[in-house]
Design a binder for these strands. Structure first.
Lengths: 108, 108
DNA sequence: ACTTACGGTAAGTTTATGCTTACCATTTGG
DNA sequence: CCAAATGGTAAGCATAAACTTACCGTAAGT
């Protein structure tokens, strides 16, 4: 499984997106991440593992607490994936527009 | 369900990513999309629906054939979502680095 | 030392969703 | 006009994966 596959897979789940969004502003300990979420704390732990393997977050242990924070590496991978489509979609659009124009010219 | 939720949901599935990637270079009819994929043609139709609702692709009917092509709108939504984390993750890193430095100075 | 807080993992259950078959509507070519 | 091609939808199934409870190890406070 490639890096981008892991990343898109991870953010494909709504609970994992909720967790990821909680970490947007600051690192949080697992208890604080689970607080307010509609799932149990072990479920959160499992999601954190998936997000970590996707390099979307990383862990910083401090005593008994494990702080998780956003990791830019996973984000970068996703951005690069999307950019390929973004660029090419524009190129396709232009190419098709040109061909259509040629077609129209033929019929003049 | 928000636009970005729909988009991340849609690209969370490997088969849908495979379909999306097939459309990267040029628009394709449904038969051509299904060709080579390890799932049935109706399954492809169902995936196309999800991708379309996520604004990641759009349809162009031409006679009996339905051509699908990449839609930049869904991509834009995902990029903007990720960019918020990208920017803020850097800001957080800097802020924490500064605080850590202050801590260190105190102990000098 | 004992207790409480933190959090990861295992095992089992449940549920969401991806897939198939069957069917139908529309289009096009002979 | 009939046959073949295209593709969307429905119903039902099957499995991946999300969730729970139970358990255990480690850290920190009293």
């Amino acid at each position: 499984m490639s890096a981008s596959e892991r990343a898109f897979n991870a953010l494909g789940d709504p609970t994992r997106r909720a967790i990821f969004e909680k970490l947007r502003h600051r690192p949080l300990a697992v208890v604080d991440i689970a607080d307010g979420l509609p799932v149990s704390r072990p479920a959160v732990s499992q999601h954190l593992k998936v997000l970590r393997e996707a390099k979307l977050i990383n862990i910083k242990t401090s005593g008994a607490k494990n702080f998780y924070e956003v990791d830019r590496e996973g984000i970068l991978v996703m951005r690069e994936y999307l950019d390929k489509f973004w660029d090419e979609a524009l190129a396709n659009f232009k190419r098709i527009a040109e061909n259509t124009e040629k077609e129209n010219n033929k019929h003049e």
